[in-house]
């Protein structure tokens, strides 16, 4: 099943064209990795999947992004889109409030107010994000006091609490140490069973470790999109080969 069907997507920041006609199909319950040098458009594409690009002044989108066949730049309500398509940022960004309130923020936003329901959501989400045992005694403590790795897993849990279908991750481990990175990769692999995941990464080992498919971006275009194994072992495009063998980027 195709979750996201991106058709000839062009994106402009003012006069600058950041995406030059992207065609990409993102499968359900798979991990799709976006790789490429800085400024190649991979993060821009990621952000256009839940319309976080709307925040950028002068940003204009042409083309289609279909989520389960529905154009997300059409009639679909943007808050509903963002509930269905969650996002985890490069730098962990827990809200300056308690662990509990961080997780409950999304559900409360979408109208859940009963305490017992929220309690239940907080517990199951933290369990799903494999951080319940670490945090169950600290639910009322400020999330800011957690370690970087814990903060990022909390942010993943926070995104899961609104029961999304897709998780977008923008270099989620680039600010973390190797041990925290390992834990997050494990978590991402585990989440694949229930969610479609798109991850932007600068770390090619990470892409090979966790992703099913990989798209290589260069200058606003998708140069190559294939099964991760194929792309890294037998790239079809010379530019892909140069990049993954470390000749540039």
């Amino acid at each position: 099943m195709i979750k996201f069907d991106i058709q000839n997507l062009k994106l402009y920041y003012g006069d600058y064209q950041a995406l030059k006609g992207i065609d990409l199909a993102i499968e359900e319950r798979e991990i799709t990795a976006f790789i490429g040098p800085s400024g190649c458009g991979k993060s821009t594409l990621l952000k256009s999947l839940n319309r976080m690009n709307d925040l950028v002044e002068g940003c204009r989108v042409v083309g289609k992004v279909l989520l389960d066949g529905e154009d997300i730049y059409g009639a679909l309500d943007v808050t509903e889109l963002r509930r269905r398509v969650g996002m985890v940022f490069q730098k962990p960004n827990p809200f300056p409030m308690s662990v509990y309130d961080n997780i409950a923020f999304g559900p409360r936003t979408h109208g859940i107010t009963q305490k017992h329901k929220l309690d239940e959501i907080v517990e199951t989400t933290l369990k799903n994000a494999a951080i319940w045992d670490e945090l169950k005694d600290r639910l009322k403590k400020s999330a800011i006091a957690l370690s970087g790795g814990q903060q990022q897993r909390l942010c993943i849990a926070r995104a899961l609490a609104v029961q999304p279908e897709v998780l977008l991750m923008d270099e989620p481990t680039s600010a973390l140490d190797p041990i925290s990175t390992g834990k997050i990769e494990e978590l991402i692999l585990d989440l694949k069973r229930r969610y479609s995941i798109v991850i932007v990464t600068h770390n090619m080992q990470q892409a090979t470790r966790i992703s099913d498919k990989t798209a290589f971006f260069l200058l606003g275009e998708v140069v190559e999109f294939d099964e991760t194994e194929n792309l890294f072992s037998a790239p079809r495009d010379k530019r892909t080969e140069d990049y993954i063998t470390g000749r540039f980027g």
């Binding site: 809200f95 923020f105 999304g106 942010c155």
Partner: peptide
């Protein structure tokens, strides 16, 4: 207040007003 709080709230499906009043203002 870091913009990341605001963006984090929007990414959860919060409206502009909700993001401002419940994340930026408390911060």
């Amino acid at each position: 207040v870091p913009q990341s709080y605001y963006e984090g709230a929007l990414a959860l499906g919060a409206s502009h007003t909700r993001a401002v009043y419940f994340t930026v203002l408390p911060a």
